[in-house]
């Protein structure tokens, strides 16, 4: 069963952004998702201001690095101007998650060194940082998407050490996801319910192309992900 809430939310976000800035985001979306199949490589390489994830193992790690950057900046902004009525539990949770996501970006930056992508530019116009629901539903989408991204990318990795590190991170993302679900639906079942866990008890997993499509509305910097290994 699809997570209809977040799917609807993402659609709303995406159409909102398209209305506001069609050209820019349409460009980013195309680059991130389908360009590899439609355009010759030279066109991608020539695109000004674009970022390539690289190839092979590096591309997979840079893909994770990009998602962690997205999350880290989001929670940094959340805690820079906390929404009205943020209670002490929410403050603790969101501050901790911010620090965890920054730690993840610090890891990838150090581990990838000169192969790492630079700092990406994001667009937050779809998020109302003053509004609890807007912030927490965005957080839920990012955490669930993060879990699905790591679960889907594990099989693209070739180095067991990288797989273990991805595993060290994804279970923390899963913890985040569950707690954010609980903030939105206290002591409900959505943290591990049919929206995220299927009939076989399996959590979300998504291919990079699906993930990039989901996050494209938030990413300004064109990303060339054509060097990612194919499953």
């Amino acid at each position: 069963m699809p997570d209809t809430d977040s799917a609807a939310q993402i659609d709303a976000v995406r159409s909102g952004i398209r209305r506001r800035s069609l050209f820019k985001f349409a460009g980013a979306t195309v680059l991130a998702t389908t360009a590899a199949g439609l355009l010759p490589r030279s066109v991608l390489a020539q695109r000004p201001g674009g970022v390539s994830l690289g190839t092979g193992e590096t591309a997979v790690l840079n893909y994770a690095f990009a998602l962690e950057q997205l999350e880290a900046e989001f929670y940094t902004l959340v805690m820079k101007s906390p929404y009205a009525g943020m209670n002490s539990r929410e403050r603790q949770v969101l501050t901790d998650i911010r620090d965890h996501e920054i730690a993840h970006t610090d890891f990838y930056r150090a581990a990838l060194g000169s192969s790492g992508i630079p700092k990406l530019q994001f667009n937050w116009s779809a998020v109302n940082f003053g509004d609890r629901t807007s912030v927490l539903t965005t957080a839920r989408t990012f955490e669930d998407t993060g879990v699905s991204a790591y679960n889907g990318a594990g099989q693209l990795l070739r180095d067991p050490q990288h797989l273990t590190i991805a595993g060290k991170i994804v279970s923390v993302e899963a913890r985040h996801a569950a707690i954010i679900h609980d903030l939105l639906e206290p002591r409900g079942s959505s943290f591990a319910g049919p929206g995220v866990i299927d009939d076989f008890g399996l959590d979300l997993a998504a291919r990079p192309s699906e993930v990039m499509k989901k996050v494209a509305p938030f990413i300004v910097t064109p990303i060339d992900s054509s060097g990612l290994p194919k499953a």
């Binding site: 790591y150 594990g154 099989q155 067991p160 797989l163 273990t164 899963a174 913890r175 979300l204 997993a205």
Partner: peptide, 30 residues
């Protein structure tokens, strides 16, 4: 997490194990 590297030669089994792994992460957080 400890067993995942032993499943690397089987993308299907690895992905399934990873998907169970993160579901357990959700459980324990709650």
């Amino acid at each position: 997490k400890g067993q995942a590297p032993f499943l690397m030669d089987s993308p299907t089994l690895l992905t399934a194990a990873l998907r169970i792994h993160s579901s357990e992460g959700r459980h324990v957080a709650l």
